[in-house]
Design a protein around this nucleic acid. Structure first.
Lengths: 354, 354
DNA sequence: AACGAAAATAAAAACGTTTTTATTTGTAAT
DNA sequence: ATTACAAATAAAAACGTTTTTATTTTCGTT
């Protein structure tokens, strides 16, 4: 019944194993491993070495029970309707990758919770809080008035949102400067001679949809023109929506001469719609898009875009959440990114004689 | 110091709370809640009711510590290089959504672990096993000889793979019939008069890359032609790879007259390459693609594809993992899907005079 | 009426930590 | 040499479960 290498390997080493091995008590071991100042340096060294030798890894479940922490960062991942899936160009994978990078080295892991709508997201946030399913939450798809933000701000639970609501609350967030991006795109097209510009936009309750409309409107205002509000199309981010909006808008009495697209899935739809009508972007109609996944260079023709690598947003989300869970002041944890313009077309067809 | 509603609400109810409330012991409560046959029906009813009333939710950490289970299903999510992100059309979001649907109602949650390469994936799988980070694993990107499958099969740890390795091992898996899909696409193009067909394929160590080459080869073999192995391009799944392969292949002495593309990101690249050369799919060159995200209908022109809703794969993965974690026989947990052909072009340009 | 077996419930131990409290050891001051 | 105090370590309790073992209750048999 010798305690062979194999029989030892059966069950992973615990603090108790270390205690038996080194002769110290489990209390001392625990403190030493957490680098507590009350234990002598010499003993710490001995314990660290022993831990190293036997490959000790703290049992997450034991820690979790005692401390009440889960070492889980929850990410609420929105998912569109199941039936008849349509691509919406939302690369959550990239966001998760960014968050994961930020969490690397920490003891936190990512747990993903799929949500179907805002109500679902609100329920899930509450459950995560009440049941202690995670120590912090990251979520996106923020509404102008978002119940999740109200809930979490009030309770003080650590979270970071991708996007801002329109209430003057203080909370950690990461966002794209959508107002500016829409303003800049619109201004560019106006400078190119366009007056009838279509905005392919997400649905209104989404906060950033409103931000974009604001920027769109401001550009026309500053140029001294009236905003063509009749050319704002609102829908999901699917390719189908882009296509159908295009077909509908172009058969109007006063059709648009240019399009601004919310992301590349809708852009693909717009190009598809144009193709069906025998029109070509850059030749017959100007198109400017926002690009999350760096794909607009491969459209035919390549499209002028505002590009923001989405992984960077993810990384910042993760960093902020770590700081927030460590008790950081949300006031300090706010960042708004401006995407960079990548010119691929002159976008000045508006100056051409109709 | 009355125990007001508010003061009670401070800390969530535990089994102890229920014990005090109902007068039963915590052992009885625990068994009752797990619907054990040893406790009388009447007491069960009383305890269920009390639990309902105070909104008792079992503490996951306590359960985890005692049972050694984590109630986590780990998903290894591969992520491409960070610098200069290129879209690869892999909609992991859809896979996660499918898995999540399958896990709904169970006590399991999804934890996502980002991995950068196969070695990383192997390390992570080992850590998940050794440290008990999860009760089961799902992963993809299977190599012809995949060390993760060897490792997990040997240790008996529950897992389901998206894809099959080429070793005759028994393990739970979900896959697409890539050999058949490549065969069918090639056969269709050969029937359309093509002999010089390019295959835009993933890199060789990937099992399904080899499956596709097999199908490609079989189609030529059955038709009595030699396989144009010089027209097989191997690379990542990025749009850039699709474009660059196209440009390179078409300036060969004997260029291809048709393309088979591995997914829609490469397809977009191929179309971009064709556009740069002044060529049009469906007019100058035939293109058949595999479509995971239902977007090929929106290319200009729409492309014939083999479509397999990826969410279905995810759902099956989740179902299989649940069964596997419950001790199910892996022999029974194997499914291979055949994508459905969606014809959008005649694909018979090969019969045209050169 | 007493016994034994079965049914129902209670008590206690265990999972692996952290933290609070207690004890031992070492050292300087009397 | 004794005392006081700090430093270092050990012991014990606690987190919320599940499971094994022990005890009590019920009920049919003799």
């Amino acid at each position: 019944m010798a305690e062979t290498e194999a029989s030892v390997r059966r069950t992973p080493p615990t603090i108790k194993t270390l205690a038996d091995l080194t002769g110290y008590s489990i209390a001392t071991i625990s403190k030493a491993l957490r680098d507590s100042p009350v234990v002598a340096q010499a003993t710490k060294d001995a314990i660290f070495k022993a831990a190293q030798d036997i490959g000790y890894q703290a049992n997450a479940r034991g820690m979790a029970l005692r401390t009440g922490k889960t070492y889980q960062a929850a990410v609420l991942m929105p998912v569109t309707a199941v039936r008849d899936y349509e691509w919406d160009g939302v690369e959550y994978t990239q966001i998760l990758s960014g968050i994961s990078q930020a969490l690397e080295g920490s003891d936190y892991r990512i747990s993903v919770h799929v949500i179907r709508d805002t109500q679902d997201g609100c329920d899930m946030a509450r459950r995560i809080m009440d049941q202690g399913l995670a120590d912090g939450i990251i979520f996106s798809g923020i509404l102008a008035d978002d119940p999740r933000i109200d809930l979490l701000v009030e309770s003080g639970f650590p979270f970071v949102s991708l996007g801002r609501c329109r209430k003057p609350l203080v909370y950690a967030h990461v966002d794209i400067d959508n107002e500016w991006a829409a303003f800049a795109a619109t201004q560019r097209l106006i400078a190119g001679g366009h007056r009838r510009i279509a905005l392919i936009n997400p649905q209104r309750p989404l906060s950033y949809a409103m931000d974009r409309i604001d920027g769109f409107t401001r550009a026309f205002g500053e140029a001294g023109f009236e905003t063509p509000t009749d050319l704002i199309a609102e829908g999901d981010l699917s390719t189908r929506f882009g296509r159908e909006s295009t077909l509908e808008l172009l058969q109007r009495a006063e059709p648009p001469t240019a399009f601004i697209c919310i992301n590349e899935s809708t852009t693909l739809g717009v190009l598809s719609g144009l193709g069906s009508l025998g029109l070509q972007a850059g030749t017959d109609i100007d198109v400017i898009a926002y690009d999350d996944i760096n794909v607009s260079a491969y459209f035919t023709p390549p499209i002028t875009t505002f590009y923001q690598p989405i992984e960077v947003l993810g990384r910042t989300l993760g960093q902020f959440l770590l700081q927030r869970m460590a008790g950081g002041d949300p006031q300090m944890l706010r960042q708004v990114f401006r995407p960079t313009l990548i010119e691929r077309q002159p976008d000045n067809l508006g100056a051409r004689p109709a």
